[in-house]
């Protein structure tokens, strides 16, 4: 009887500790680029069994969906069902054991800042991912930082990575004069070449249309959808200054960036 009481008392105290550790962080996210918009942000609090991306390792299909099309879950794009981060992590806003995640919707325009509350559900690490548009498969990533436990404000600078799942052809995905080699599919979106998001409302300039291709070249009206992975630091958009010709449909004076491309300020509240 005494032993049982002791055990239940221990359990209670453990439960009390874990409740006190679950905190709602304030995550302030700033786009530091001059002309790259960020797609909806995926924020994941997780344990050490979850790794959304790793430099030097091939991208998952979930990362490819995020980096090529900005898609995180079924609600955004039903075609991604079973292959996106929702499939990898589990239901949204739920304690999935190894993780909990949320999609902060909408485009984040260049130079803009937004703040989000986020319940970490007692997970030790934080990752954050968002696609840069207009690019082929560039994403900004926070790679499994240890969530601070002391109340305070913590600042992180994030780099742009290349998911490596699509060649950086830098061709406007609205173009109709080019199709994917082999399939004849129109440009744009997951698994198909062409920079995504060129017509986004947060765009700084319209894309060109006459490029011949940068990381891959147009041959007889077709463009290859090859890979250039594993995940690595993005070498930057190239662009050029001729919207009707040249290699790229991006503008070299507008669309380039240098790391870091985002700032994250995490506030751990006093409990």
């Amino acid at each position: 009887m005494k032993f049982t009481k002791l055990a239940s008392a221990t359990l209670l105290s453990l439960a009390a500790v874990s409740v006190s550790q679950a905190v709602t962080l304030d995550i302030e996210f700033t786009n530091l680029t001059q002309a790259q918009s960020f797609t909806p942000r995926l924020v994941i609090a997780h344990d050490d069994t979850v790794d959304a991306f790793e430099v030097g390792q091939p991208a998952s299909s979930a990362l490819a969906w995020l980096a090529e099309a900005g898609v995180i879950d079924d609600e955004q794009n039903a075609d991604s069902s079973g292959a996106n981060f929702e499939a990898l992590l589990g239901p949204v806003d739920t304690d999935n054991g190894s993780n909990t995640w949320h999609r902060f919707g909408g485009l984040l325009a260049p130079k803009a800042t937004l703040s989000y509350p986020f319940d970490t559900m007692d997970k030790p690490y934080l990752s954050l991912l968002s696609m840069l548009i207009p690019t082929n498969d560039a994403f900004v990533g926070m790679d499994s930082i240890e969530i601070p436990t002391e109340p305070g404000t913590y600042t992180y600078y994030l780099n742009a990575y290349d998911a490596g799942t699509e060649l950086n052809d830098e061709l406007n995905s609205a173009r109709k004069d080019v199709v994917e080699a082999g399939t004849g599919n129109a440009l744009g979106g997951y698994g198909v070449p062409g920079v995504a998001g060129g017509g986004a409302p947060t765009r700084i300039v319209d894309l060109g249309t006459g490029g011949t291709g940068v990381g891959a070249q147009i041959v007889n009206g077709e463009i290859e959808d090859g890979e250039d992975g594993p995940v690595h630091i993005h070498r930057n958009a190239l662009g050029d200054t001729d919207s009707a010709a040249g290699a790229s449909d991006l503008d070299s004076t507008v669309h380039r960036w240098l790391n870091p491309v985002a700032r994250v300020v995490i506030t751990v509240p006093a409990s």
Binding site: H234, N236, L238, D240, D242, A247, S252, L258
Partner: peptide, 26 residues
């Protein structure tokens, strides 16, 4: 890269291509 476009920003005598570009961190 871009040695021939209107910007002429490329170095025509370079044997490197756009693929050899790198950003920090390296």
């Amino acid at each position: 890269a871009n040695a021939e476009d209107p910007s002429r920003e490329g170095l025509s005598t370079s044997v490197l291509t756009e693929a050899h570009r790198f950003d920090f961190p390296t």
